[in-house]
């Protein structure tokens, strides 16, 4: 693959949320924070797609939002196109904003129900550039062609469109302003398989045509593997494994990645990993963000930890695993990689 320049780099990004403590915590003076994103670093090159996978609540969407400065970062650095955008003010950031766009997860919430499709696209065009009416119309029909949307839909309201069409409008809107980097937050999760395939193909076509870079957030592992060049797997706010998509999917080194991939119903034949899954079911899906277990956060659910007879290195806070390089393009956060 031809190597391009880095378009986005994230260094040690942290996003902590402070829950509403109420009157009681004011007296105890205890500061409880939820580390939604905890020390995450990665980079995305031009024309590259990075997939971000993980379970609900692991911080995928928070990363997407923080990178686009939709929510301020607690610590760390976000560098877009050699500019540090972490601490730019809204006015300073405005010229860059059009290059960094997001495709939102919720189809219905992202489109104003009282605006016709044409008005929605027009608004996006107007915000960043001043165009004459004729130019505007030309640009809109150009956009429609790009996302394969019928012209007749322009006069419709969002609720008159199907899920796939709404998604196309969302994509067209990000393209309207001339985005170069797009955070796609679960773009296919609310769609049927047949429509999902259309959207995935569209996103890949657009990437080739317009040299876009994506941060593709999804819990659909197959789609992520298909569309991404590299994949980062997240668990409780941390990246536990990162590498080329094919490697992560076919030869995962972190136990969590293995569990995640084996959970695909289709790949049920992979019984060995499945059976190694944690017998203690109550741990599944119940995360206590406020008190992450000491040491490795995945240890309570980890099949390797249980198989190895609960080694203390996994739970000791002093030796909590760091993301380390296995080779040039593969990093893993585990003491006992598979």
């Amino acid at each position: 693959m031809k190597m391009n320049t880095t378009i986005l780099e994230v260094q040690n990004l942290k996003k902590y949320y402070k829950p509403h403590g109420g009157i009681f915590s004011a007296f105890t003076g205890k500061e409880n924070v939820i580390p939604a994103v905890d020390d995450v670093s990665f980079y995305i090159k031009e024309k590259e797609t990075m997939g971000l996978v993980g379970e609900t609540g692991c911080g995928k969407t928070t990363i997407g939002r923080t990178v686009l400065k939709l929510t301020p970062a607690t610590a760390g650095k976000i560098i877009f196109d050699n500019t540090d955008i972490t601490h730019l003010s809204a006015a300073q950031f405005r010229p860059l904003r059009k290059q960094l766009q997001m495709i939102f997860q919720d189809l219905d919430a992202a489109l104003n129900p009282k605006m016709r499709i044409k008005a929605i696209l027009k608004e996006a065009l107007k915000v960043h550039r001043r165009l004459s009416d004729a130019e505007m119309d030309r640009r809109i029909s150009e956009l429609l062609e790009m996302v394969n949307l019928k012209k007749s839909k322009l006069s419709n309201f969002p609720n008159e469109l199907s899920g796939g069409e709404k998604r196309r409008v969302g994509i067209a809107r990000t393209l309207a302003v001339g985005a170069r980097f797009i955070v796609a937050d679960e773009p296919t999760s609310a769609l049927d398989v047949s429509i999902q395939a259309q959207v995935v193909n569209l996103l890949r076509d657009l990437q080739k045509e317009l040299s876009l870079s994506y941060l593709f957030i999804s819990y659909d592992l197959r789609v992520v593997e298909l569309i991404s060049h590299k994949v980062a797997v997240m668990y409780l706010g941390q990246i536990v494994e990162m590498g080329m998509a094919g490697r992560i999917a076919n030869a995962p080194r972190h136990p969590y990645t293995a569990v995640l991939w084996s959970s695909l119903v289709e790949k049920k034949s992979n019984e060995s990993i499945k059976n190694a899954g944690n017998p203690n079911e109550s741990q599944w899906g119940v995360f206590d963000f406020e008190r992450p277990s000491t040491g490795c956060r995945f240890a309570p659910r980890c099949p390797v930890y249980h198989a190895n007879g609960h080694p203390t290195i996994c739970t000791d806070p002093a030796t909590s695993p760091q993301l380390r390089k296995l080779d040039a393009a593969h990093q893993v956060r585990c003491h006992f990689p598979l």
């Binding site: 049927d192 047949s194 395939a197 995935v200 789609v223 593997e225 298909l226 999917a249």
Partner: peptide, 26 residues
Amino acid sequence: AALLASIPTARQIREKSYLQAIKGDV
């Protein structure tokens, strides 16, 4: 047949080939 074809198969993923979408809408 079209519905089944639009699910990404292991081979399609490996070869990063295009998915066979069903054109049009429901």
